[in-house]
């Protein structure tokens, strides 16, 4: 078996072990960088209403960011802001919560252009934990630390039972990192999506 085949098999195994059945998915239209317009695809439709929701760590709930046209799939007109977790929800006409189906979730990273824009640490709202942003590290590591902190706040507020699966990244590498064949496709955004996907799914499944 050559390296490409091995890589593909590893990716399929990883995706099989991590992907849950979700009635739809949402992800960025541009997988290799920001800004991010969300692409959605919701099954079990058509529904009467579709909307983009963002998880609000202050109140611990999903809030509507953009109403969407009545289409089971599409791309948002506007880009969404980074440093947040998004999903798309489709609902029946009565808007009852039970009638709604949610997509998998997608983390849109926050990418600071300067380390001065990043704090020294991120804290939980309850003061239970504080996560370090290594200020002497290169900017991409500081950006990762900060996004880890923000996503940890989300996980903290969501609770264990209310965590939908995360959309599997387009270029998913194994625990050993990307193969030589994958490297040309690995941008800083792709890298961060991989790491945050592992963090989220690891916490969700309590690996």
């Amino acid at each position: 078996m050559n390296k490409i085949t091995t890589g593909l098999v590893l990716m399929i195994l990883w995706q099989t072990s991590y992907a849950d059945q979700s009635p739809g998915l949402v992800k960025c239209d541009n997988v290799q960088g920001l800004p991010c317009k969300l692409v959605w695809n919701i099954a079990n439709g058509p529904h009467a209403y579709y909307r983009v929701e963002r998880f609000d760590t202050k109140n611990g709930n999903w809030i509507v960011v953009q109403p969407l046209p009545r289409k089971p799939r599409g791309v948002t007109v506007n880009a969404v802001s980074g440093g947040s977790l998004y999903r798309v929800v489709g609902c029946k006409p009565d808007r009852a919560a039970e009638s709604c189906v949610g997509s998998s979730v997608h983390w849109v990273p926050f990418q600071a252009e300067s380390a001065a824009d990043l704090p020294d640490s991120v804290r939980s709202s309850t003061g239970d934990w504080e996560l370090v942003v290594h200020k002497d590290a290169p900017l991409h590591m500081q950006n990762l630390d900060y996004n880890v902190g923000l996503l940890t706040q989300v996980l903290d507020r969501m609770g264990q039972t209310a965590r939908p699966p995360m959309t599997v990244p387009e270029y998913l590498y194994s625990d050993q990192g990307p193969t030589a064949e994958m490297l040309p496709d690995i941008t800083l955004d792709v890298w961060m999506q991989n790491e945050l996907y592992r963090l989220y799914e690891g916490a969700r499944r309590r690996r």
Binding site: E130, H134, M141, Y173, Q176, G177, W191, E195
Partner: peptide, 9 residues
Amino acid sequence: ASIYVPSWA
């Protein structure tokens, strides 16, 4: 304070 170690950097 806590730190996080990624799988690959």
